[in-house]
């Protein structure tokens, strides 16, 4: 796995963000009670589902970005573009 290192770090970071977002200290921040509503939905509910959706979107973007192919190709491709940028 080490060939993916940067993406791996991002995945772990996302995981940590998820753990933080879905657990009490941060949840309490959004736990504003039944009277605080946004678009007619209690803030706590809205936060939970939107944060959830955002996490899924981030994971999808991260995982799906290199269409097919291994990390080596990915690294190679990025190096190639870099070289091109450098030379151009």
């Amino acid at each position: 796995m080490p060939e993916f290192s940067q993406r791996n770090e991002r995945i772990v970071a996302l995981f940590v963000v998820g753990v933080l977002a879905f657990n009490p200290p941060l949840l309490r921040v959004f736990d504003a009670g039944p009277d605080v509503m946004l678009f007619g939905i209690p803030l706590l509910y809205l936060y939970l589902f939107l944060a959830w959706a955002a996490l899924i979107v981030c994971v999808a973007l991260l995982i799906e970005r290199p269409k097919r192919g291994s990390g080596k190709q990915e690294a190679f491709a990025s190096r190639e573009t870099k070289i091109r940028r450098d030379s151009g």
């Binding site: 995945i11 772990v12 996302l14 995981f15 998820g18 879905f22 996490l55 899924i56 995982i63």
Partner: peptide, 8 residues
């Protein structure tokens, strides 16, 4: 959801 984030 969290576990699948680490699924890779």
């Amino acid at each position: 959801t969290l576990m699948f984030t680490l699924g890779w």
